[in-house]
């Protein structure tokens, strides 16, 4: 499967993401700059983490209005898989591709540590490598990961299985509502998550718990 990594000024996790996708799929992803209006024919588009546009206005707000996002919207409507990690998640909610909003951490502090994630929904294109309720480790590093959605939206996403990951075992680092760490769209092809699975994919990282997300999305789950 072919993948693409989106690049915007201020994103700084793109190289980690490119390395992860290359190692797991065996093929280097193409890179797509923010001004591009067409995205090559790929099966997975990843928006990595960082601080696009210096987090000005609101995290991800300006990036979400760049031309490349229109192209990503069109691809998402066609069913292409889209994964947003950290700032990528913030960009996807700002662009309206995912429900809810990401607000300042309840502690007001930047958090950089490891958390536990519960795989709430393993029946998605991104989580097939995991079992329901499985708890995995992943690093987080963010200042604005406090997921919020109004009561009605929350009811809808909880009911539809759109809540894919929750912080587990009391490790919620940001005060997100219902401990939500990752959500997908109703169609199931767009996933956003605050933790960084790309930073836990091999022995040198101290574990490979994050690998399953890419293996699932790239259809390379080991038999």
């Amino acid at each position: 499967m072919k993948s693409a990594v989106v690049q915007l000024p201020g994103l700084n996790r793109d190289r980690d993401m490119i390395a992860a996708l290359t190692k797991i799929s065996g093929k280097a992803p193409v890179t797509v700059w923010q001004t591009e209006t067409e995205i090559p024919d790929v099966d997975l588009i990843v928006i990595p983490g960082g601080f696009s546009y210096g987090d000005y206005l609101r995290c991800g707000a300006i990036a979400a209005r760049m031309p490349v996002m229109q192209a990503i919207k069109a691809k998402a409507e066609q069913g292409v898989r889209v994964l947003g990690v950290c700032n990528g998640f913030q960009i996807l909610v700002e662009a309206g591709l995912l429900p809810g909003a990401l607000m300042r951490n309840a502690s007001l502090k930047f958090v950089c540590r490891e958390v536990k994630l519960e795989v709430v929904n393993p029946e998605t294109a991104f989580t097939r490598a995991y079992a329901k309720g499985q708890v995995i480790r992943t690093p987080v590093a963010h200042h604005d990961g406090n997921y919020f959605a109004d009561a009605e939206t929350l009811k809808t996403i909880e009911g539809n299985g759109q809540v894919v990951f929750r912080y587990a075992e009391g490790t919620n680092p940001n005060g997100s509502i219902n401990d939500i760490a990752g959500v997908m769209n109703a169609k199931g092809n767009v996933l956003g998550m605050m933790p960084h699975p790309e930073n836990l994919i091999e022995v040198a990282h101290g574990g490979s718990d994050g690998r399953g997300i890419f293996a699932s999305a790239l259809d390379v789950i080991a038999a």
Partner: peptide, 9 residues
Amino acid sequence: EKLLANTVI
């Protein structure tokens, strides 16, 4: 509507 406010919050 398009940029200055995030009308979700």
